[in-house]
Design a protein around this nucleic acid. Structure first.
Lengths: 349, 349
DNA sequence: GTTAGCACTCAGGATCATAGAGTGCCAGCG
DNA sequence: CGCTGGCACTCTATGATCCTGAGTGCTAAC
């Protein structure tokens, strides 16, 4: 039994040497953009083994779907499976911090112009630093401390709802409150909600906002209820606010010389929903998540990798990168970690 | 004397027939994307004249810089000067309204979610409808009626300034107010400014906000002053808010198959300043302005044309299009006019 | 002033040959 | 039995060559 389990495992697992070859092929391909042949791998990375040996291993690795060939007589190219091994190996070992990093961090830390413009700037910085597209999202605003809520009459049933959150983050939308209320009533409503909510995240006070705080407003009980419901639905949705920047840089890369590839990505970026979903689906509670090529369910992203990392505002501000599968993961991951950390510092002051 | 003046004028002005040729070349090039030869022009647009005649005229038009050749034996291509004639001739004649227009308009008119998201949607619609990049800008907020001003304490000298303008347009930034004021003082300050400003554009009340309205606050006179100054500088700047959408569609056009061209445009769009400047510089008080290729001073835009038209919010919301020089001006201009009009309606309710 | 005719130019596509990178497989070696 | 050198084979990329067709400029005749 044990033996059979072992043998079965051997079929799927790669040997030490095979791993070495896979990593070398990925590394070489990321560096040069050209398929790597057995000769190259032998010469540059594995002097101990002849090209013929490498070739034999490569044939096996192709069968196991770690590598593939563009055509019969071309070198080997890595599949997502190979990239996965490569990224996992990077994540495990210690990475060096690029020298320019200090300058970037400085730029961020000395920002005072508000969360929105800071996030925009960070995405642009990320893009420039990595030749990828910088992304930022504010997720789960219900977990962020509320400072104040206010309503403003727009006419008819329409009311402008403004929620000011921790650190001066402003969220506003037009909502519908039945009954054409006067500004005075709206102010009173806002005052009461603010009193209870201020200093707490919405998720905490949501239940507290029951009937008793609206004492004396029984006449408009329905309005109070739908006001609370509206705030709820506003803060509840995931990744309400999205920021994208530095997209220009990706166009310098050879991988995106084909306009169609970029168009596919752009079509995702220009709609809110798919991007928000992706950020939500692939980000993890802590640390950098890397999703590679067809691991992303969106067809349009099949030529891209997505890196995400939760950052400031109690991990509710998520920072990310979208770049070619053949990106410099080492640098990208390090940069993302650094800037996410810097952003956290900047928020928490 | 008169005769010499006449002759000189003849050198610069084009004859009726020459104009006809220029317009035909532009039209043909916009339609097909290929240089137009004398034979084509003669056959399709000017049966009355032989190719040889057209050729002679073309040689003259080349000397006058209306046309040029890619190489000796290619057909003629229009220069900006030729496009200028073409666009001017379009602007003068009546244009037909595309059938799909009704659907677009409907989509806009039934929008309730606030000015920002409306503008974003309109830019995307514009982009899709014309295969150009849709652009929108809010200019001169000081001319827009104010609803309310409020300040919110962020800690230290930093204060969040929120100005709510006509129609629920929210403008906010972090500003610096000296002296770490309490929220109560800030509220009082906001209340006083709001009382005076509400219902008027800032440009109107700016002078009224002299010392007397801050009676009883002499102790913090400097704060009052810098608060007013901050609001002033916020609302004063041109094209504070920019919206870009539908950029993906431009990549379907043959003109933008070359990634570098798109990259140039994108580098402009990703910074606020240059785009804001362009909108400010090239928009006119009323109606559509068309700026073609190298008429735009930004080098990055040399392969593009820029269409702009003031729209709702008392002409302060400017709508625009960025597309290839070889765009369907007739359709683009009509679309822009339509959507700008529709947006105006939507705002003024 | 207009036009037909003609020689000339040039880009773009098709065809072909060649070089070079890389593979798979076999036979021999330790 | 695993590793390696050798060899025949495959396939792409590159460059040279040729050819066609579109289009021009010029000249001479109407």
């Amino acid at each position: 039994m044990i033996l059979s389990a072992n043998t079965r495992k051997e079929v799927h697992a790669v040997t030490e040497r095979q791993l070495e070859i896979v990593l070398a092929v990925v590394y070489e391909f990321i560096r040069t953009g050209e398929p790597a042949g057995s000769r190259t791998i032998s010469k540059k990375y594995m002097r101990g083994n002849s090209p013929a040996t490498i070739r034999n291993e490569m044939a096996d690795l192709e069968e196991m779907r770690y590598l593939y060939q563009a055509h019969t007589s071309s070198g080997r190219l890595p599949t997502s499976k190979a990239y996965r091994l490569y990224v996992d190996s990077i994540m495990q070992r210690r990475r060096s911090v690029p020298l320019e990093a200090e300058a970037w961090m400085h730029e961020i830390r000395n920002r005072r112009e508000g969360i929105e413009s800071l996030l925009t700037q960070v995405t642009q910085l990320l893009g420039k630093a990595t030749n990828c597209i910088g992304v930022a999202a504010l997720s789960a605003l219900e977990e962020v401390t509320i400072q104040r809520v206010s309503f403003m009459r727009l006419g008819g049933d329409m009311v402008l709802l403004i929620v000011v959150l921790e650190g001066g983050l402003v969220h506003h939308t037009n909502i519908r409150l039945p009954g054409d209320l006067s500004q005075d009533v709206l102010d009173e409503l806002a005052r009461r909600i603010s009193t209870v909510a201020s200093g707490h995240p919405w998720s905490e006070v949501r239940r507290t906002l029951s009937a008793y705080i609206f004492e004396g407003l029984e006449r408009i009980r329905d309005v109070c209820r739908s006001a609370v419901a509206e705030i709820d639905s506003q803060l509840n949705r995931k990744n309400t606010r999205l920021f994208v920047g530095g997209a220009q840089h990706i166009l310098s890369l050879p991988d995106f010389q084909d306009v169609n590839k970029f168009q596919a990505v752009l079509s995702i970026l220009e709609q809110e929903q798919p991007l928000a979903d992706m950020v939500d689906r692939y980000s993890i509670a802590d640390g950098v998540s890397v999703t590679i090529g067809d691991e992303i369910s969106e067809q349009e992203m099949k030529d891209c990798s997505l890196l995400l990392m939760p950052s400031g505002l109690g991990r509710k501000a998520i920072l990310g990168l979208i770049g070619p599968i053949r990106m410099d993961y080492e640098r990208s991951i390090t940069m993302l970690e650094l800037l996410a950390e810097g952003l956290g510092d900047s928020f928490d002051r």
